Computed example of a mutant assay.
Amino acid sequence: MTNSADHGRVRASYDVVAEEYRERVGGELAFKAVDRGLLGVVVEAAAGGVVADLGCGPGHVTGWPAERGVKAVGVDLSPAMVELARRDHPEAEFREGDLLRLPASDGEFDAAVALYSVIHLEPAELSPAFAELRRVLRPSGTLLVSFHLGTEVRRMDEWWGHRVDVDFHFLELETVAGLLAEAGFTVDARLERGPYPEEAQTHRGYLLARRG
C-alpha cells in the first residue's frame, strides 16, 4: 500500500531540518487565529478524551491541547521531530509512526488533527491513510485535515540551506472531501483561507469531519 522508499525520503528530509523547523514554525499558532479556533472545536468535540496530532512535527500543535489539560498524543514519521517534541512538550505523549500504519489501537482517539501531513502522501495513498485515520478514531470521533490548495506537486531538494528530497502535494478541497466520505467520514465543514504574511504564500484548505 505504500512506497517505503518515498516515506524514507520524507523521514530523512524532516530529520535534517528538524531543529530549524522547530525554530521557524514552532511558534506559528501565535498568529494563526483560524487554526487555534479549529483546534478549539476539535478539543471540545473530544469531550475530555484523547486528541491525536498525526504528523505532529516538533509537537507545538500537540502541546496546545495538552497545555489546556487535554490528553494529547502526537505521532510523526521523523525520529528527530519526535525527540524535539518530547523535549519541548513533556505534558504530551509522542510516538514514531507512519500515517498508513499508525501506532495506535482501534478507536483509541476521541478526536484527531492531520495538519499538512497528508501533503507528503502519493495520491494513491490518501484513501488507505484516511481508512487508517478512521480506524484509530472512536465512532463519531472528529477529524480535522488541512492542506495546501491546488493541483501541483513541489519537489524540494534544498530547504533552509539543507539538502532534502521531499515532495509537497497540493490538493483540491472537494477531492479530499470525497475521499474522506469514501473512507466513512461525514464532512461537516469546509474552509479556505489565504496565507498569513508570516507563512508560505499558499492558499489553505481545512475539512472538519466525523467518523461514521
Rank of each mutant, 00 (worst) to 15 (best):
G55F: 06
A183M: 08
A5Y: 13
R154M: 15
G37V: 12
G37E: 12
V16R: 14
V25A: 13
Y206V: 05
T151G: 15
V16S: 10
P197I: 09
D167I: 05
F31D: 14
R86F: 05
H169S: 10
E93H: 13
A111P: 09
I119F: 07
Y116E: 10
A183E: 03
G8F: 03
S105L: 15
S105V: 15
L39R: 00
V73M: 06
F185L: 07
A114C: 11
R163E: 04
W159R: 14
H7N: 07
R138Q: 11
T202H: 15
R95V: 01
V153M: 08
R204F: 13
S78D: 07
H162F: 15
G48D: 01
M1K: 15
E44C: 02
Y21P: 01
A12Y: 05
A112P: 00
V17F: 10
R193E: 03
P65K: 04
M1F: 09
V25S: 09
D6R: 15
R204E: 14
L29R: 11
R211N: 12
V50C: 05
Q201L: 12
A209G: 14
D6P: 03
E108Y: 12
P195Q: 01
L180P: 07
R101Q: 11
H60S: 12
A12E: 12
R87M: 08
D53Y: 02
L180M: 05
G48H: 00
V166Y: 01
K32S: 09
L191N: 01
A183Q: 06
R154A: 07
P58C: 07
L171N: 04
A85T: 02
R163C: 00
A200S: 03
T142Q: 09
G69R: 00
A209Q: 07
S105Y: 09
R135H: 03
P123W: 11
E67Y: 06
R101N: 14
G178T: 08
R36E: 09
K71R: 13
A92P: 06
P128A: 01
A183R: 12
V42L: 14
T62P: 00
G63H: 06
P195M: 07
V187K: 04
A5I: 14
V145S: 04
A200Y: 10
E172A: 10
E28V: 12
E19M: 04
W64P: 04
V25R: 08
L121F: 02
V70G: 11
A131G: 10
L99N: 01
A189F: 13
V50M: 10
A12V: 13
V187P: 12
P58N: 10
G63T: 03
G8R: 09
V25F: 14
M1W: 10
L99G: 00
E125I: 06
T62R: 01
G48F: 02
E96A: 05
L137Y: 08
E182F: 06
T151D: 14
V166M: 01
G141N: 03
D157G: 09
L191Y: 09
G184A: 01
E172G: 12
G59R: 07
S127K: 13
L102E: 00
R193S: 07
V25Q: 10
D106A: 13
E158L: 08
